[in-house]
Simulated assay, not measured.
Amino acid sequence: MNINNFKTEIQEMEHWWHKLIFLCDRNGQFNTTIPITDQFEKVNTNFILSQGLINIAKNKYPLYVEDIILDTISNKNKVYLLQHIDILFDPTLQIHPIRLLENISKTYKLVVEWPGRYEDNQLFYAEYGHPEYFSCREFEGKVILK
């Protein structure tokens, strides 16, 4: 990933309807090389959702997921780097991870470390047959391959 191109995308993001960038690692291993400045805030999605859902009944999870994330994300001037998003694919949450991220990105700038792969204009998570398998061809936002 060219860091100058990334900086340009971040600047242009302000003008997008969905302020959303997916970072996809070609090797499937993530080691973010984004220079984290005051403009960025890292969010460990697995952690905040695990903590936020601990006292909620499983059948109510879908009602709370977005609110729990929004309790962490609140500054429209920051760019939120969402890391460790694997929990979003847990079937017990009963959510569509991409639609959730798109909805949040209408208000807040998100850069998402995608823990799967990007092939043929499609985002994948897990392998076909796995309970958390997910694929999405139609989505808003931009994909940047590392």
Rank of each mutant, 00 (worst) to 15 (best):
G116M: 02
E102N: 07
E127G: 01
R99C: 05
E113Q: 02
T92M: 08
E102P: 04
G141E: 03
P131K: 14
L93P: 09
E102T: 10
V143H: 01
V112G: 05
H130V: 14
Y118H: 14
I144M: 11
Y128H: 12
T107S: 09
E102Q: 12
S105H: 06
F139V: 06
K106H: 04
N103K: 13
Y118W: 15
I144T: 04
H96D: 10
A126M: 09
L145K: 06
P131T: 14
I95F: 01
E127I: 13
L93G: 04
Y118N: 07
G116Q: 02
F139Y: 12
L100H: 07
V111D: 02
C136H: 10
K142D: 14
P131N: 12
Y133A: 15
W114N: 02
P115D: 03
C136M: 05
E119P: 02
Y118I: 11
L101Y: 10
Y118C: 05
V143C: 05
I104D: 08
N121H: 13
K109F: 05
F139S: 06
F124A: 11
P97M: 05
E132Y: 12
E138K: 09
I95R: 03
Y108E: 02
C136V: 13
T92N: 14
L93I: 05
L93A: 07
Y108T: 07
A126H: 13
R117F: 15
Y108G: 00
F124Y: 15
L101W: 11
K142P: 10
Y133T: 09
T107C: 01
L110H: 08
L93Y: 03
T107H: 08
V111C: 06
D120P: 01
E119D: 10
S135A: 09
L123P: 05
L110C: 11
Q122Y: 14
H130T: 01
K106T: 07
I95W: 05
S105M: 03
S135F: 07
L100S: 03
N103Q: 15
E140H: 07
V143T: 04
R99D: 14
L123R: 03
A126R: 09
I95D: 03
V112Y: 00
F124Q: 03
S105W: 06
E132V: 11
G116H: 03
C136I: 13
L101C: 12
F134H: 04
F139P: 01
E132D: 11
E127F: 12
I95G: 05
E113A: 04
W114G: 06
Y133D: 09
R99W: 09
K109A: 02
E138L: 04
N103I: 02
L123T: 10
Y125G: 04
C136A: 11
Y125F: 15
T92E: 12
Y118M: 06
K106F: 07
F139G: 00
Q94V: 02
E138S: 14
S135N: 12
E138V: 00
D120M: 06
S135G: 08
V143Q: 00
L145M: 05
P91G: 11
I95V: 12
K109Y: 01
N121F: 08
Q94S: 03
V143P: 00
S105K: 12
F139W: 09
I104A: 06
I104Y: 04
